[in-house]
């Protein structure tokens, strides 16, 4: 439903000259003058080694952390100017999260976990339940709805987490190393799911990873090094080709072996 070649694609995320410093002015610069633009419906990967600033960037993009300088617009709204209460509402309604450690609540069934963001919004229970049924069917966990997270495999947990991220029909889904804790089979299942969601529902996905295989599912990959954008690789639909390009890029950036940073 979303054609990647569309020229009049809307910019969903606009980052201009964002800097993040820790420990007082000039002490440690995690992000240094970063600017980037992401279009609606894109599946973008962010790669970089540990300490490159990729997780910091994700946190700032998703209002979990604040920037020291610069502006960020998501869906036309300046998130750097938001107050805490407003930011929380924004996170809940416009943004979805997928984490490496799943971050499902242990004391709720899968169904309740997925329902949580909408129930906080006082959406009617029947609407929530219908939404859950539709999404879990797409992600293939409709059988697991009444189980608790500890009864699920890693891949199932991550798919449940994706459902929770998608239930509010967010503009952007942020995925932080979503396959980091999974074996390769579960990892590719989860990545297929994300890809499927991206093309079927047109959800914009921004995924942080240091796994070249995971990154090869993306449309475009941004490379971070020492808090700056170091390069970019575009895919044209050929996964193998993209994978090779990523490895190439990592080699150029230096210090890469076996496709991992």
């Amino acid at each position: 439903m979303n054609s990647k070649g569309d020229v009049c694609m809307k910019n969903i995320v606009e980052v201009s000259r964002v800097t993040k410093e820790y420990g007082g002015a000039g002490a440690y610069r995690a992000l240094n003058d970063v600017s980037l633009t992401i279009h609606e419906g894109e599946f973008v990967g962010i790669m970089g080694s540990s300490g490159s600033g990729k997780t910091t960037l994700l946190h700032i993009l998703s209002t979990i952390d604040g920037a020291t300088a610069g502006n960020i617009h998501i869906d036309g709204r300046d998130i750097t100017a938001m107050k805490e209460e407003e930011a929380a509402k924004f996170r809940r309604d416009k943004v979805g999260f997928v984490f490496q450690a799943y971050q499902l609540l242990d004391n709720m069934t899968v169904r309740d976990n997925i329902a949580l963001p909408l129930s906080l919004n006082n959406v009617k229970a029947s609407v929530i339940l219908n939404g859950i049924d539709e999404l879990t069917e797409i992600l293939g966990i409709e059988e697991q709805l009444d189980k608790y997270p500890y009864e699920l495999s890693g891949g199932q947990k991550q798919r449940a987490a994706i459902c929770r991220a998608l239930i509010t029909s967010p503009k952007v889904v942020f995925a932080d190393e979503p396959t980091g804790a999974l074996d390769s089979k579960s990892a590719s299942e989860v990545l297929e799911c994300l890809k499927d969601i991206n093309s079927r529902l047109g959800t914009t996905i921004i995924m942080v990873t240091h796994d070249a295989m995971a990154a090869s599912y993306c449309d475009r990959i941004l490379f971070l090094k020492d808090g700056r954008i170091h390069g970019e690789v575009d895919g044209d639909g050929d996964k193998q080709m993209l994978f090779a390009n990523i490895l190439n890029m990592l080699a150029v950036m230096g210090g890469s072996e076996h496709g991992r940073l």
């Binding site: 979990i64 805490e84 209460e85 929380a88 509402k89 924004f90 996170r91 809940r92 309604d93 943004v95 999260f97 984490f99 971050q103 499902l104 609540l105 242990d106 004391n107 949580l116 963001p117 906080l120 929770r164």
Partner: peptide, 15 residues
């Protein structure tokens, strides 16, 4: 830990 997750998925302080 649990409330850290809830905060991330958009639960405000008031909630």
């Amino acid at each position: 830990e649990q409330y850290a997750i809830l905060k991330q998925i958009g639960m405000s302080r008031r909630e």
